[in-house]
């Protein structure tokens, strides 16, 4: 019974991926992609990884889907302006060898991986045992949170830096003259929906963050839900992205600032970088996580809202069209 379910799920996942790749219509690919995220969340459940299922449900099926829809809408909106612009055109008919070579390399990749999975040696080191052993000293009960914010917290610190860099690049890309989004009037239905839906989203986000210390959940999942709530608000026409620039910057960086400050200030007591004093480890981790949740939510939202509006000003286009 178990196996039948898993096999069906795996095949559905592969079909879904194939659907994403071979949809001629871009929008169909996007919907397939959203479905793919959902199926992947189910796969994580079957792999005993509810944390990943949470993250995938919030990010894969939620945020990334919205980003993609937004991008496709952008393409079609712009397409109306560009007469004869190449939309979803993959170029001239390819040569025979350029058909065979990709098939060949994909098959090779699959066979190599198959072998690597099949003839894998038994690992001589068992990290899960070590994690279980050190869990009492980590300050949290949930092993994944312990790995993310204590044992391998340096990775997490750098990862927040990665997110922050992405936002900085997004800011740098933003045109200097940002124009108000066209047609952003408040829709009464959306308005009502958001009034009912956003508060529970925020509550669930905070709950997931809080749950992270003893069961699946934590800063990333909470942050992703927070970001989704913010995206929802923006879609519903609330102009929350028009926060003061400096305020937004501080909010984006707050999690990183707190993390870095805690990581460094423990060194005053002679401890190595990122060593939480054992007596307050749990509290410190929760504090950092709370700040991270806030910042991650803001960062992910910001990556969404920095995108140019679907109907972009076409002033810069004139020269381009003359060129062609």
């Amino acid at each position: 019974m178990n196996l039948a379910f898993d096999v069906l799920l795996g095949i559905a996942l592969l079909l879904c991926a194939a659907g994403v790749f071979y949809s001629r219509d871009l929008f169909r690919a996007v919907v397939m992609f959203i479905a793919f995220g959902l199926l992947l969340a189910l796969v994580w459940v079957r792999l005993d990884a509810p944390d990943l299922a949470l993250a995938e449900a919030a990010i894969g099926a939620g945020l990334t889907g919205v980003l993609m829809i937004d991008a496709v809408a952008h393409l079609s909106a712009k397409n109306a302006h560009h007469q004869g612009a190449q939309f979803d055109q993959t170029g001239a008919r390819p040569q025979l060898w350029s058909r065979i070579l990709p098939v060949f390399s994909a098959v090779i990749i699959f066979i190599l991986l198959l072998g690597a999975i099949w003839w894998r040696p038994d690992a001589p080191v068992s990290l899960p045992d070590l994690v279980a052993e050190s869990l009492p000293e980590s300050g949290v009960e949930h092993p994944i949170t312990a790995v993310l914010l204590n044992f391998r917290s340096y990775d997490t610190l750098l990862e927040i830096a990665v997110l922050l860099v992405a936002v900085v690049v997004a800011m740098a890309l933003k045109p200097d003259t940002s124009e108000p989004e066209a047609g952003n009037s408040k829709d009464p239905i959306l308005h009502g929906l958001s009034a009912r839906l956003v508060p529970p989203m925020l509550v669930v986000g905070v709950y997931i963050l809080w749950a992270g210390s003893y069961m699946p959940g934590g800063a990333f999942q909470g942050g992703a839900i927070l970001a989704a709530a913010l995206v929802f608000l923006k879609l519903a026409g609330f102009g929350i992205e028009r926060l003061a620039d400096s305020l937004l910057r501080i909010g984006l960086a707050l999690g990183f600032i707190v993390f870095l400050t805690v990581a460094t200030s423990v060194m005053i007591g002679g401890r190595p970088f990122l060593t939480y004093p054992e007596s307050v480890a749990g509290e410190l981790i929760f504090f950092i996580e709370a700040m991270l949740t806030f910042s991650i939510g803001l960062i992910l939202f910001s990556l969404f809202s920095q995108a140019p509006p679907p109907v972009a000003p076409t002033s810069s286009l004139q020269g381009e069209q003359d060129e062609r």
Binding site: N150, S153, D155, F273
Partner: peptide
């Protein structure tokens, strides 16, 4: 060698 967070190698970084 520097063990970040005072966690030794295979567990920590």
């Amino acid at each position: 060698r520097y063990a970040i967070g005072d966690w030794m190698a295979p567990l920590g970084i």
